[in-house]
Design a protein around this nucleic acid. Sequence first.
DNA 1: TATTGTTATACTCTATAACTATA
DNA 2: TATAGTTATAGAGTATAACAATA
Lengths: 151, 151
Amino acid sequence: MKPTSPFLPLVRELVRTYQAFERLSAGHVRSMGLTPAQFDVVATLGNTEGMNPKQLGEKTLITKGTLTGVVDRLLDKSLVQRLPDPHDGRGQIVRLTEKGQALFEAVFPTHVAYMAKALAGFDSTLLGPTQQALHALRQVLEQAGGTEDDA
Amino acid sequence: MKPTSPFLPLVRELVRTYQAFERLSAGHVRSMGLTPAQFDVVATLGNTEGMNPKQLGEKTLITKGTLTGVVDRLLDKSLVQRLPDPHDGRGQIVRLTEKGQALFEAVFPTHVAYMAKALAGFDSTLLGPTQQALHALRQVLEQAGGTEDDA
DNA sequence: TATTGTTATACTCTATAACTATA
DNA sequence: TATAGTTATAGAGTATAACAATA
């Protein structure tokens, strides 16, 4: 029997754990009337003066073409506004409206509390080590992505 | 300053690590002509006698309505076949075709090798502990999802 | 010339619910 | 009545590339 990669179980567990998180999180976010991508954008803009779509895309990992659409839909809901960028005539600043800010303040803590409650059973002594291990794993993955030489 | 939940950093790291993985993995999978969902199905069916859509959905976490479409597209590519379930007139067995099996054999090890190469820099002494920590985290998340009392 | 953001195309996935055929 | 799977609907995200305006 050929030995499969020792990394497979780790990767599988990463995927399953993320999926469990995502299902829980997305379900709650949707019940508040936002898609995960929309929540991501609102949460990223919360407590900021706004930022241009490029920065927003980098933080949320949403590509620019898609981001235009996500922002459009948030605009339809009057949750964000597009302002001209004073420093760059090509650019713009996407910023929460008052309504968006109010939603952020109502929804973000609720969501954090919801997730915190869900995670309450997790052994807190594992918090730090798990986080560090994930971070190390991410470093490796990002480096591989940056290098990008095909197998 | 109100203390934010101690779980937030962990969750953030989980999401980012997963996203780093997903970007790398999905990119490679796409370069082989499959979407992530399609790859997931093919990988799940690989080395099996086939299974019904219900089992397939449970393993891949794809809901039944969506799964019909994913299988349809794999059918278009002649990678899977739908066979009647001998034990249940309502049911069916989804199974790889020879072409699908060949693809699986060509593509799955390639993908594993690609990911293994990307992960080669990860400290192998952390493999076990990280996996266990993720598993514990998943247990907690799944339990919360099962209980499903809103916050 | 390079970059910012929009638009267009075409596909895929998602949730939800109604529907059929069988159990 | 309950379950397996399909179909229909409506919306949203994805990659990719061409494009306009500005730097």
